[in-house]
């Protein structure tokens, strides 16, 4: 069964008999791992300033280009200047709307993502460990996975109602797949030598799960979670486009429909910022969880 759609984010290679996770310096390395490794050289104020410059340079250039575009006469109603967008941004999100529209959205996002992570990892471990269960369930999962969550919204309205439950279900249904499938692959790829060794030493049950299986699969699990996080943000917006009366997605659609274009842009800017912040937070967590793994790889590479 091919996993090519998720493969690019999977840090470990196929299952082999060499100690896993095996180090392969040329491929399989996530860009995150690369920046992490170099970080020691970038410590100190100069390094921090450099990093900030790296982050801000391209956005500044893009905003500049866009500004120049909007500054020409007749640039149009639908492309307000960054100044107008900025004003709308401050007026909108530094007000009650933050509590009415943004916080509930983020809450649903958090709950949906957490549930997807629980279900994905739990079911993934189960499937990864048992080939027979996997053979039975996997075709169904592949089928369900191909269903775009938005088309399920009317059905979910009937089953789960029009409140938060429906919106969270949409998020969970959409972003559980990368977590689940990556966990299955990660668990399957547990090094058999390590596995046998653990068995010889009498490591079984939850200890085995904790120190061997989850640990060994964690690079893949984290890769799945990272994909799922991006999906969760998109699905948060989509779920609010149906049967809604509040939320960030609802607000953006509403602005678009009422021709409040700077406000619509301000909503999209906020979504982008949320995505950026969440991705940065995730990187921090990932650094902690996968610290051992990166150290191991660096050691293999002889650094």
């Amino acid at each position: 069964m091919s996993r090519t759609t998720l493969g690019q984010a999977q840090p470990t290679p196929e299952n082999t008999h060499t100690p896993s996770p095996k180090a392969d310096p040329t491929e399989q390395e996530s860009p995150v791992a690369r920046t992490r490794r170099r970080r020691p050289g970038n410590r100190g104020p100069a390094g921090a300033a450099l990093r900030t410059a790296h982050v801000l340079l391209l956005p500044a250039v893009l905003i500049g280009v866009y500004w120049a575009f909007t500054a020409q006469p007749g640039a149009g109603f639908y492309t307000p200047t960054p100044a107008a967008i900025g004003t709308a941004f401050v007026e909108l999100w530094f007000s009650d709307r933050f509590f009415v529209d943004v916080l509930p959205s983020l809450g649903r996002l958090a709950v949906g993502f957490a549930l997807a992570a629980l279900i994905g990892v739990g079911l993934g471990v189960l499937l990864g460990l048992d080939a027979r269960v996997r053979a039975t369930i996997e075709p169904v999962l592949e089928f369900l996975r191909a269903i775009p969550p938005p088309v399920l919204v009317p059905l979910m309205i009937m089953l789960a109602g029009i409140d938060d439950t429906m919106k969270i279900t949409v998020i969970v249904f959409g972003c559980v797949w990368p977590i689940l499938l990556n966990t299955v692959e990660g668990v399957r790829a547990v090094d058999p030598v390590l596995s046998d060794t653990a068995r010889c030493y009498g490591i079984t049950g939850t200890t085995r799960l904790r120190v061997l299986i989850l640990r060994s699969a964690s690079p893949q699990i984290m890769a799945g979670l990272r994909l799922a996080l991006a999906l969760a943000i998109i699905l948060m917006v989509i779920s609010e486009m149906f049967a809604s009366s509040s939320g960030l997605g609802f607000a953006i659609v509403q602005f678009q429909r009422t021709f409040a274009i700077p406000e619509m842009w301000a909503g999209m800017v906020l979504l982008g910022i949320i995505g950026f912040v969440l991705s940065s937070l995730f990187e921090l967590v990932e650094g902690r969880v996968l610290g051992w793994y990166r150290g191991l790889r660096a050691a293999h590479r002889g650094e």
Binding site: L58, P59, L62, I63, V65, Y66, F69, T70, G76, Y78, T79, W265, M268, V269, L271, G272, I273, G275, F276
Partner: peptide, 16 residues
């Protein structure tokens, strides 16, 4: 901010 300028450029291109 990563998303928004990219969107801005894409949208402007589409508008053009």
């Amino acid at each position: 901010m990563r998303l928004s300028p990219a969107l801005a450029v894409a949208a402007s291109a589409a508008l053009l």
